[in-house]
Amino acid sequence: MIRKELVAASAEPLVLALLAQGESYGYAIIQDVKTRSAGKLNWTDGMLYPVLHRMEHRGLIKSRWGESETGRKRKYYSLKKDGKTAMDKHHEQWLLVHGVLAGLRKEQYV
């Protein structure tokens, strides 16, 4: 299981990257992340929504109410232009951290 600080820090870049693939809604985002991480990135589901609202507040994403296939109300989120920029920035920073970490690890075994 991944530590909760890391889970919290990775929520925004993950949501941005997922929404970059197209419109989605809370439940689907959570399921998608769960599947992609083989169940290791386990959010307390309800916590995603404040994150989404905060991101919407900051103008990174936008939302609209729609309906599910069964006619249930559902709030869909999609990426805005600022969100795309933010995503690229996140990506760059995570790659940097990853690069440093990987480099250090490699040196250990030389």
Binding site: T44, D45, G46, M47, Y49, P50, V51, H53, R54, E56, H57
Partner: peptide, 19 residues
């Protein structure tokens, strides 16, 4: 249980604020 405890949710939502 999966959705999370009400009080914790409230704290997070307060932080997020309304538009």
């Amino acid at each position: 249980r999966q959705t999370g405890p009400a009080t914790a949710l409230e704290t997070e939502f307060t932080k997020a604020g309304e538009t």
